[in-house]
Computed example of a mutant assay.
Amino acid sequence: MVDRPNKPTAIPVGSSTAVPAPQVDISSDNSSVTATLPSGDSVTVLLFGATVTSWKSAGGKKENLWLSEKAILDGSKPVRGGIPLVFPVFGPPPSDHATSSLPQHGFARNSRWEFLGKSTSESAGKGSAGDDSVTLDFGLGSSNLSDSAKQAWPFNFGLVYSVTLVKDVLTTNMTVRNEGTKPFECQVLFHSYLKVDDIANTTVSGLDSIEYVDKVNGASTQTETNKAVTLTGETDRVYKALKPEAKVVVKENGKPLYEVGRDNLDDVVVWNPWAEKAGGMGDFAPKDGYKQMICIESGAVSGWQKLDGGDSFEGAQIIKSVL
């Protein structure tokens, strides 16, 4: 599936005699991995769900991801906040599909992943003193699944999830491979909770003239007419078929806060539960925390990716934190 011949040893990684290098640490309970750049930027990934729970930029001073104060981090349920992974189905599975027996959003966010190792490079900044990029790789395959998940979705697959940290930029990349002979269909999405100061002062641009499915409005199909989308209530929209070069920009008080780009992912979900729905979630805290978050989720979810035996699908999300 996704094995590497040499599993990573206990880290931190770096050289005491060389120029500054990224530091990679595995938590004492082996539940998470944290990478820190010489600049102070950092990212933390929980092995349960391979969920990014923290991404700090601006020298480690700015937390970019919203994480519920009551997020469950012990592996008993998916994490509320950060960047949970959606695979092989987005939303409630359709009753007439091979994923019909799976839980909402599939099993990737409910499974423990393997840490496959790290790599570094200086490609992001010529002439800098030390490594300025680090990639953490995680793997999940059929053999890692619970018996119930295997029964619900009996296909042989391998996932490699790469989290790359560069100063002020976080890239999440998923590769899906059909390791068996039976074809299967899947969906992939990065469920990113971005942190804002006040949703009332937040707008989203880059979606003008894009067709979307409004899940709050009876799954009706609409076309976005606003150059700057504002959120004034529960929002759950799947914007479809964005151009590859299109950037979705989150602004606060008119100033760019995040730029979200995609590679081989055509869809963008905009989500916020608002007061009533947040109030009904036991792991959502504080209850008015919806005012400090907006989900901008890149994915391939408006249709299905069909993979024959040996085929692969790869897609990535690139988030830039703008100071």
Rank of each mutant, 00 (worst) to 15 (best):
P5A: 13
P5K: 12
P8T: 06
T9K: 09
I11W: 12
V13G: 14
S15C: 15
S15V: 09
V19Q: 13
P22I: 01
V24A: 07
S28P: 01
S31L: 09
T34K: 12
T36K: 14
P38H: 08
S42A: 13
V43P: 08
F48V: 11
G49P: 08
T51N: 04
W55F: 11
W55P: 07
A58L: 08
G60A: 10
W66T: 06
W66G: 04
E69N: 15
K70M: 10
A71N: 02
I72G: 07
L73E: 03
G75I: 09
P78M: 06
L85M: 12
L85R: 04
F87R: 06
P88Q: 04
V89F: 07
G91P: 05
G91W: 02
P94K: 13
S95K: 15
H97I: 03
A98F: 01
S101A: 15
G106H: 07
R112W: 08
R112C: 08
T120R: 03
E122L: 06
A124L: 06
G125A: 09
G125L: 09
G127P: 03
D131G: 15
D131L: 14
S133K: 12
S133H: 06
T135G: 09
T135L: 04
G141W: 01
S142D: 07
S143V: 05
D147H: 04
A149R: 08
A149M: 08
K150H: 02
Q151V: 08
A152T: 01
W153M: 05
W153Q: 05
W153P: 11
P154K: 02
L159S: 03
V163S: 11
V166D: 15
V166S: 12
D168P: 11
L170V: 13
T171D: 08
T171N: 08
T172R: 07
T175M: 13
R177S: 14
G180M: 04
K182W: 03
H191F: 14
Y193V: 02
L194Y: 15
A200S: 15
N201K: 13
N201Y: 02
V204A: 03
L207V: 01
L207R: 01
I210L: 06
I210C: 02
Y212L: 04
K215H: 07
T223Y: 13
E224I: 03
E224W: 05
E224H: 05
N226V: 02
N226H: 10
A228I: 06
T232L: 05
D236M: 07
Y239G: 03
K240T: 12
K240W: 14
A241L: 12
A241M: 11
V249T: 14
K251P: 02
K255H: 13
L257D: 07
V260R: 11
R262N: 09
N264A: 11
N264L: 06
N264F: 04
L265E: 03
D266I: 07
D266P: 15
V268G: 00
V268R: 01
V270K: 09
V270M: 11
N272K: 01
G279N: 05
M281L: 15
F284P: 11
A285S: 10
Q292K: 13
M293W: 00
C295Y: 00
E297D: 02
E297Y: 01
G299S: 02
S302Q: 05
W304E: 09
W304T: 09
K306H: 06
G309E: 00
S312P: 02
E314M: 00
V322W: 00
